[in-house]
Simulated assay, not measured.
Amino acid sequence: MRIGFDARAAFLDPDRGFGRFTRALAEALLQVVPGEVVVFVPHGFLVPPPWYLRAASIVQLVRPRRGAFLVDAPAWAFTLRRHRVDVLHLPTWGVPCGLGVPVVATFYDATPFRFASPRRRWQRRRARLMIRSIARATLVHAISRHAASELLDVVPIADTRVSVVPLGVDGAFTPAPAPMTPRHALFVGGGDPHKNLDLALAVWAHPAAIALPPLVVAGAAAADPRLQGLVQAGVARPVPHPGDSELVGLYREALALLVPSRNEGFGLPALEAMACGCPVVAARAGALPEVCGNAAILLDPDDPAAWRAAIAGLAADPARRAALA
């Protein structure tokens, strides 16, 4: 069987959760079924040399482009006529029409239907259109039970075509060999409104934050201009593009990972933090209770005082922190 795999997100969005998932899944497929995967990558990016050794072929695409699946549907169809596959896995950006092969699509969440996220209205409209296009898929991979429920709420698709397969954690995410002294609290994620960076900013902008460790903001949210005031005050530090090895170090040295999102289809940073022995303080929202269970402190995503108290409590109680690690 020849499997087509759209790996563009691994190169175009390497810092975002779905981009990292796409890269990990591509590498896993190439190891499990070497010689049977046709990998589609964006033109002009450096492809890891081992991919060439294990793939049936590496196809560099000038078109279709990210997020332009409507106008690029004919380009996809043309590409698939030249590079025949028996099934195509599209882990991001919807399912164009007229592909002519069975399609497996990955679904993350329905945030654009529930929140003003992304911020720009045209981006939300495009995202909703791509989500609705998933109805064309032969089979949908939902990354959590919560994601599957959201999908069935917004897309007319039979539940028999939806399979829940939770995400996993790369083997690089492991606890420190010896206990480490916490140096910071950590926020990992993008800058979209539903990620709720506002809550972390409110916690550290409060005068009582003087007793808290500094806040490290890693990922796309590090570019948020509102963070600069806290950086200038010496209570926050941005880390814009952390690789996996740097993320492991940040998790291991953190007092806790903060995940205040108002919605998550999964919440991969929470699982990565737990794998590194880092306590998690997460919102009681989206898939986070499903993913974290009773291994995290779950709080209202709109109650900064409760989050400030939880962080201060972990700083003052090493035994509590060790129990959550």
Rank of each mutant, 00 (worst) to 15 (best):
F11A: 05
L12K: 10
D13C: 07
F18H: 13
L25E: 13
A28H: 14
A28P: 01
V32L: 12
G35E: 08
V39F: 00
H43K: 12
G44L: 01
F45D: 11
L46Q: 12
W51D: 05
Y52N: 00
A56G: 06
A56P: 01
V59L: 02
Q60V: 00
L61H: 01
R65N: 03
R65C: 04
L70D: 03
V71S: 10
D72V: 11
T79Q: 13
R81N: 08
R82P: 01
H83A: 00
H83M: 05
R84M: 02
C97L: 14
C97E: 12
G100S: 09
T106L: 10
Y108Q: 12
A116E: 13
S117H: 06
P118R: 02
R119V: 13
R119G: 02
R120V: 11
W122R: 14
R124G: 05
R125C: 09
M130Q: 15
I131H: 03
I131G: 01
R132M: 09
A135L: 07
R136P: 14
A137R: 01
T138D: 11
T138G: 14
H141L: 08
I143A: 08
S144V: 12
S149T: 14
D153M: 08
P156E: 13
I157E: 12
V162H: 06
L167W: 02
G168M: 03
A172V: 15
A172L: 14
M180G: 00
V188Q: 09
V188F: 08
L197H: 07
D198G: 02
A200R: 01
A200L: 14
L201K: 08
L201P: 04
L201A: 10
W204D: 12
H206S: 15
H206M: 03
A209Y: 05
A209S: 15
A211Q: 14
V217K: 11
V217L: 10
A222H: 10
P225W: 11
P225C: 06
L227P: 00
Q228A: 14
Q228R: 15
G229T: 15
V239S: 09
P240N: 10
H241P: 00
G243K: 05
G243L: 04
E246F: 02
V248K: 03
A256S: 10
L257Y: 09
L258G: 08
R262N: 01
R262Y: 05
G265N: 07
F266K: 03
L271I: 04
L271F: 00
E272I: 11
M274F: 02
V281T: 05
V281L: 15
R284C: 05
G286Y: 05
C292H: 04
A296L: 10
I297P: 00
P301E: 02
A306E: 13
W307F: 07
W307C: 02
R321H: 08
A323N: 05
A325M: 08
